[in-house]
């Protein structure tokens, strides 16, 4: 058991544990903790594949931003009443079959591209800035425009509520 295998296993367990929690818990805040664990596991996987910038961006944007927004929404919508509201999960065999079919399809289609062994951990290349400000400049600027559009959209929705 090399250290790399342990690192991948830890990140994978974090992500899988979060996913299992999201599948089965019936309370809103535990759902958020499960999602938080999942997002941290994804960040760990990015780190394993040798992309530390993407991993820290994932923590910054998702765990520190999107998850906070979702917890705010939970606190507003699922207000603590006297009897704690319980979310229902309609476990459904048909849905499970569909999800399993999608999973198997993905694995079957991509198995030839990926090897059999564990993917080797990457080495950081460090020229992200050259890439983003050079060949991919248009994509970078469009991402900024998208974020600005999202901000304006949220403000518009918020303003529309007050009427």
């Amino acid at each position: 058991m090399t250290l790399e295998v342990i690192a991948f296993t830890l990140a994978g367990l974090l992500a899988a544990g979060g996913a299992v929690a999201v599948l089965f818990v019936r309370e809103a805040m535990r759902l958020m903790i499960g999602l938080g664990s999942f997002l941290l596991g994804v960040a760990g996987l990015f780190l394993y594949f040798g992309l530390p910038f993407l991993a820290t961006a994932q923590v910054f944007v998702y765990v520190g931003g999107v998850l906070v927004l979702m917890v705010f929404a939970v606190m507003v919508v699922h207000r603590q009443a006297d009897d704690r509201p319980v979310m229902e999960v309609r476990h459904d065999v048909g849905a499970a079959a569909v999800a399993l079919a999608v999973t198997v399809t993905i694995v079957a289609c991509l198995r030839s591209v990926v090897g059999d062994a564990l993917p080797t951990p990457g080495v950081y290349s460090g020229v992200l800035a050259d890439e983003l400000l050079g060949p991919k400049l248009l994509v970078f600027e469009m991402a900024g425009a998208l974020l600005l559009t999202g901000l304006v959209a949220v403000l518009t929705i918020r303003e529309g509520e007050d009427r």
């Binding site: 991948f8 994978g12 992500a15 899988a16 996913a19 299992v20 999201v22 599948l23 809103a28 999942f38 996987l45 699922h78 979310m87 229902e88 999960v89 309609r90 476990h91 459904d92 849905a95 499970a96 569909v98 999800a99 399993l100 999608v102 999973t103 198997v104 993905i106 694995v107 991509l110 198995r111 990926v114 090897g115 059999d116 062994a117 564990l118 993917p119």
Partner: peptide, 24 residues
């Protein structure tokens, strides 16, 4: 291969969550 199965099953789990949960 293990990583592929992991990611695909996480995707499938997300799909299952969308199909079975009622709250937005």
């Amino acid at each position: 291969m293990v990583a592929l199965v992991l990611c695909a099953s996480l995707f499938g789990a997300g799909l299952y969550v969308v199909m079975t949960r009622r709250e937005i």
